[in-house]
């Protein structure tokens, strides 16, 4: 005897009526929660059940922070050269090309100006997908030029860090980008313009040793890895087991290195609240 009985004879759904299930429709968070991709985007790329902040890039941050996703991208055509003729297991230009093809980005940071809650804000947002968000000459120069734009137009400046550190393939030139970006932050400070640093997962190495830790306010998303030396290096050097939650946003807040942790859904409001307060401007609704 059959378990159930077919009432209609022959089911035929015409092609146009078939529901399409594209790839990547579901997202699985590290704790195993599964969520519909569209839901995820609507929820600021945060898994609603466990609050996990999914790693996103400049495109998503611009969408979250700029009104109606409208902005003008700055210096988008800057791209990397190979000043050292660097070769490891691969040639640097090949790595660059592969990263550009994979990500459709030109390098590891995008800078833009646009209205956030009705007022202009300059944002430099790093893309981890591009060679680990590593900082070479292009990242340094683009951040420097974005800061110059803020200086010239007297605008607040924000950097969203998401980076493994300096780019090894540009060696000492990468290292000097720490100094170069710091020069610009010093100039912003001297001009009395607020600089907001948002640390996201992960923020380590050269970025932590420069602009990521130098905000007038330094803030972070929950659960981000933030540190100078990566956890593996710390464990290998000291031979100690690392405590639970070591180098997370919450750890840094507890040790006094962050002003606050913000949920992504509150980011736009809290950043603009800070700007209104520190510039003694009327609060925007």
């Amino acid at each position: 005897m059959a378990w159930f009985k077919r009432k209609d004879k022959g089911i035929h759904t015409s092609t146009e009526d078939k529901k399409d299930i594209p790839k990547g429709l579901w997202y699985k968070s590290p704790t195993g929660k599964i969520i519909d991709s569209e839901e995820l985007a609507k929820n600021f790329y945060v898994s609603p059940e466990d609050g996990y902040h999914v790693r996103i890039g400049s495109k998503e941050y611009f969408e979250i922070l700029f009104d109606d996703n409208k902005f003008k991208e700055l210096d988008k055509d800057l791209s990397s050269k190979d000043p050292l003729k660097f070769i490891d297991t691969k040639k640097y230009p090949e790595r660059l090309k592969a990263a550009q093809e994979k990500t459709s980005l030109t390098d590891a940071v995008r800078c833009a100006v646009g209205k956030s809650k009705g007022k202009d804000l300059v944002i430099a947002a790093m893309d981890f997908a591009f060679i680990g968000g590593s900082m070479g000459s292009v990242v340094g120069e683009k951040i420097a030029r974005a800061a110059d734009y803020a200086l010239k137009n007297k605008l607040p400046f924000m950097i969203i860090s998401k980076s493994g550190g300096a780019r090894m393939m540009e060696a000492a030139l990468s290292l000097m980008q720490l100094a170069k970006t710091s020069v610009k932050l010093a100039q912003l400070a001297d001009a009395g313009l607020p600089y907001i640093s948002l640390c996201t997962d992960p923020t380590t190495g050269g970025t932590t040793a420069s602009f990521a830790m130098l905000g007038d306010i330094t803030i972070a998303e929950p659960g981000a890895l933030i540190g100078f030396a990566g956890p593996r290096i710390v464990r290998d050097t000291t031979g100690k087991e690392l405590p639970e939650g070591f180098q997370t946003s919450e750890f840094l807040l507890e040790h006094g290195f962050l002003d606050f942790i913000t949920l992504r859904k509150d980011l736009k409001n809290r950043v603009n609240l800070y700007i209104d307060l520190i510039t003694n401007a009327p609060l925007r609704a």
């Binding site: 050269k81 980008q177 100094a179 170069k180 020069v183």
Partner: peptide, 8 residues
Amino acid sequence: YSQMGVYK
């Protein structure tokens, strides 16, 4: 320091 870096 602002001059340091090589790019296209």
